[in-house]
């Protein structure tokens, strides 16, 4: 099994394509971080943020006092107020104009990781069929299940590798741009009771990486399923990427219907339970995890079913 994964890795990393993707991602991090840094407010004095937060506090207070404010917005304002007060009391500045703003911004590029991993995954299995190499691959003493599994694992490892590259490059770039000042800046957030709390900035970053990773894994699984069923890279990559981008639109259209909470896209973003409201009322983290697990099992079952049962004809 280890050898099979090494084989898949060899086929992956001995191709230019893979390294071009990695280079594109590094480029995107560099550009994003640099732009972020360039538009910083460099004239601000070290304590200017305090005045700004004092002003903002005023704004949140007015919002809470205003009887026309909706319940949701009011809660949001209360949280912001608590955070602002905590910052002033403990002398903790916000992330903007520090290295963390660039690093957190780069976390958005996880979308790119999903995209690249889906492209590689769509080609990994279906590509063997279209080039005919699948025949020589399957006439070895390794069951089809093991081959499928080794490909799957190597894709997950590729996604993980891109994630680590993203993390290291964004940390280094922003660190260098800001001379690693505010490296130990904590994240101020609120707990469920509305009290301000200090969290580790790094811990939070990885939490959001991992939550986004869940959606990457599901898209990879989807691409694998289509690969296995249709044996066409173009179809696997095309449909998965379409799903990746059309998901948001579909969710918008179907939101009024109660059944839409069972759709894959409604549950992909687990961070919806950390900040803000879920897609539909009554949805919980546990619900989403169960729905995602069901899709995960279904997709893998279909991949396995087609890959191990069907004849290799052409």
């Amino acid at each position: 099994m280890v050898n099979l994964i090494r084989n898949e890795n060899m086929k992956l990393y001995r191709r230019w394509r893979t390294w071009i993707m990695a280079a594109l991602m590094i480029g995107a991090v560099l550009i994003g971080s640099f732009v972020d840094w360039h538009y910083d407010n460099k004239d601000a004095g070290a304590d200017d943020w305090k005045t700004q937060i004092t002003q903002e506090k005023q704004h949140w207070k007015e919002m809470i006092a205003d009887p026309k404010t909706e319940e949701g917005s009011k809660n949001y304002a209360k949280d912001q107020l608590a955070i602002g007060e905590y910052r002033l009391a403990h002398d903790i500045r916000p992330e903007s104009d520090t290295m963390w703003s660039g690093i957190n911004g780069s976390a958005q590029l996880i979308m790119l990781i999903t995209l690249f991993t889906v492209i590689v995954a769509g080609d990994s299995l279906a590509g063997e069929f279209s080039t005919g190499t699948i025949k020589l691959l399957l006439i070895r003493p390794a069951s089809r299940l093991k081959i499928l599994l080794s490909k799957y694992i190597s894709m997950i490892l590729f996604g993980l590798l891109l994630l680590i590259v993203l993390f290291v490059v964004s940390l280094l770039t922003n660190g260098l741009l800001y001379h690693f000042k505010q490296l130990d800046l904590p994240l101020v957030s609120v707990d469920s009771a509305g009290n301000a709390i200090e969290l580790s900035m790094l811990g939070n970053l990885w939490k959001s990486y991992m939550l986004n990773g869940v959606s990457t894994i599901l898209f990879v699984t989807l691409a694998f399923m289509i690969s296995s069923a249709f044996r066409s890279s173009a179809m696997a990559i095309g449909i998965s990427i379409f799903a990746l981008f059309a998901g948001a639109i579909i969710m918008e259209l179907t939101q009024p219907y109660a059944w839409s909470k069972y759709m894959l896209f409604a549950n992909l973003d687990l961070s919806q339970y950390l900040n803000g409201r879920p897609y539909q009322d009554g949805m919980t983290m546990t619900f989403s995890i169960l729905v995602l697990a069901a899709y995960f099992i279904l997709f893998n079952f279909v991949s396995w079913f087609f890959f191990t049962r069907r004849d290799v004809a052409a």
Binding site: L4, N7, M10, R14, R15, K135, L136, I139, P141
Partner: peptide, 29 residues
């Protein structure tokens, strides 16, 4: 299948790998 060596129609190899790495690939299996 352990006892079988096969060429099923044209031997389609991984074109982006060297001949040697193709053999390493099958040897590992």
């Amino acid at each position: 299948i352990r006892h079988v060596g096969g060429i099923v129609e044209n031997p389609e190899m991984y074109k982006f790998l060297s001949g040697y790495h193709n053999l390493v690939h099958y040897a590992r299996m």
